[in-house]
Nucleic acid binder design. Structure first.
Length: 489
RNA sequence: AGCGGUAUCGUCUAGUGGUUAGGACGAGAGAUUCUCAUUCUCUAAACAGGGGUUCAAUUCCCCUUACCGCCGCCA
């Protein structure tokens, strides 16, 4: 078997989409599994929509996900350049070849003419196919049109190619994930391969690039299935080897429509900003359409690659549901080491003055707060009471503090705690005894702790109380508790 | 409209011509903990519908339905 070469070919008209990331992943997995080469190609033929920031975003996101490419615009490779706009001088030669072989022809139709025909077809509820009216233009006619200043586009002659390589008008290929796919190509219109401005269209450029880059397997979204038939015909017309194709189901939003901005994040970088770990993202997205043979769902990309078989990918669409992603994200957060967490949490702690805490205090704070986090960004709202002198008392905490019991607890706490040695270990013991004392009076430990928690943090839930006291220190603790007692009087 | 594709718990999926149709997330109940979270235990939850083929169909075939995609001088 010849060398496996796959590619991901994003268009830089937006940030790296989560769906593109999944396609990239499956290509990457296929390459890994088959000891092949993973190529990154930037399809920026649409100059108007291309932006450098999108190209950067695509690079950064792919890298962050761990999907490193072997050949690409930045690292180069034997079949470059890997940016389509730098390949414009390559395509005319192949257009000419097709023209010479009669598989392509010039079309002088104007946009207005074409639009009118489409409108007409729509009115009659007929599918629109190009009329082929430029197919048999004589040289004189063409010369005349040219003299009028008209520039031709080049169209591919489907019927001619189909007849040259196939018995009937049916074209069939064996898709790696969907099985045999058929299409009656007589239903397809002769499509443009080179625009009148001299730039290639997508369908043509892909074929030339895939051919020249020796791509052996094309794995992409199923929205490309109908393109595949056109592309196969071009490969054949050029006498090139046709790669194998595999078409993946789409990722849909929970309402079964295309995943878009109104459903939340769509770009990998947006997910990251929201506090998702790239490890969780890639793992989650792998599970959309693919299932591990051992039932273990938490896996690194490399582990998945070992187990991966492309024909086992589900061929149906799947819905992007946040529940499982969130679960997975919290799971990955728990697997992070404390030093790593300290670093990765920092961007989400910008609103606080971290210099208020010593490194040891910061460490401890992270240790006692990371567990319930679903998103890294959840840390923002989980830690306000570690900072500043005073604290905002939430409504629920207010209710707790208004009870007589709470006041009694707090007064007693002030009384006793002033003599406590303020280490976490000691506080733990003292607090336990403190709870015991009240328990003897018929006050539940839970109620006792609530009073202290509400006064010190302004909340009814949060991190381990002992640790909180130890981290913020005796002064802040006393300050906050006495404020509460003062206000009640 | 035409063409192509898909159909197992709410979601992601496993699975088989004969199974108590399995797992995960989520949901509900309970236990543990100062709270939240964790952890543990338990529960509910699916083969889209109709025809065939067959001793037997969720599994194979056909039709219907639903959903998705494609029909650009976008990619």
């Amino acid at each position: 078997m010849s060398e496996v070469r796959v590619r991901i070919a994003p268009s830089p008209s937006g940030n790296l989409h989560i769906g593109t990331a999944r396609t990239a992943l499956f290509n990457y997995l296929f390459a890994k599994k088959n000891k092949g080469t993973f190529v990154l190609r930037i399809e920026d033929t649409d100059a108007e929509r291309t932006k450098q920031e999108y190209i950067d975003n695509i690079f950064d996101s792919l890298k962050a996900l761990g999907l490193n490419w072997d050949e690409g615009p930045d690292v180069g490779g034997p079949y470059g350049p890997y940016t389509q706009s730098e390949r414009f001088d390559i395509y005319p030669k192949y257009v000419q070849e097709l023209l010479d072989k009669g598989f392509a022809y010039e079309c002088f139709c104007t946009q207005e003419e074409l639009d009118a025909e489409k409108e007409e077809a729509a009115k009659n509820k007929k599918p629109y196919v190009y009329t082929k009216k430029c197919l048999n233009l004589t040289d004189e006619e063409k010369a005349k049109l040219r003299a009028e200043g008209k520039k031709p586009a080049i169209r591919f002659n489907i019927e001619k190619a189909q007849k040259a390589f196939h018995e009937t008008s049916m074209l069939t290929f064996d898709d790696m994930v969907k099985g045999k796919l058929h299409m009656d190509t007589s239903l397809l219109g002769d499509f443009v391969i080179m625009k009148s401005n001299g730039t290639p269209t997508y369908n043509f450029a892909v074929v030339i690039d895939d051919m020249l880059m020796k791509i052996s397997h094309v794995i992409r979204g199923e929205d490309h299935i109908s393109n595949t038939f056109k592309q196969i015909l071009i490969f054949e017309a050029l006498g090139a080897e046709v790669p194998k194709f595999g078409h993946l189901g789409m990722i849909l939003a929970p309402d079964r429509s295309k995943l878009s901005k109104r459903h939340g994040a769509t770009a990998v970088s947006e997910f990251v900003e929201k506090g998702y770990l790239t490890e969780a993202l890639i793992n989650f997205v792998a599970l959309l359409g693919w299932a591990p043979s051992d039932g273990k769902e938490i896996k690194t990309v490399d582990e998945i690659a070992q187990d991966f078989r492309i024909n086992e990918i589900s061929s149906s669409n799947s819905i992007f549901e946040y529940d499982k992603l969130n679960w997975m994200n919290s799971h990955y957060i728990k697997m992070l080491s404390i030093p790593e967490l300290k670093e990765r949490l920092k961007p989400y702690l910008k609103k606080y003055d971290l210099s208020e805490l010593t490194d040891a205090q910061y460490t401890r704070m992270v240790e006692v707060t990371y567990e319930p986090l679903t998103l890294l960004s959840d840390i923002t709202d989980a830690v306000p009471y570690f900072f500043g002198e005073d604290v905002v008392i939430e409504d629920k905490a207010k209710e707790v503090l208004e009870t007589e019991t709470s006041q009694e607890v707090l007064k007693s706490f002030m009384e006793q705690a002033k003599d406590w040695e303020w280490t976490e270990e000691n506080l733990h013991e003292k607090l336990e005894a403190f709870r015991g004392e009240f328990k003897a009076k018929g006050i539940k430990p839970k109620v006792t702790m609530w009073a202290i928690r509400a006064a010190v943090t302004g909340r009814t839930c949060g991190a381990d109380m002992t640790a909180i006291l130890a981290i913020i220190g005796k002064d802040k603790t006393f300050h906050r508790v006495s404020e509460v007692i003062k206000q009640a009087v």
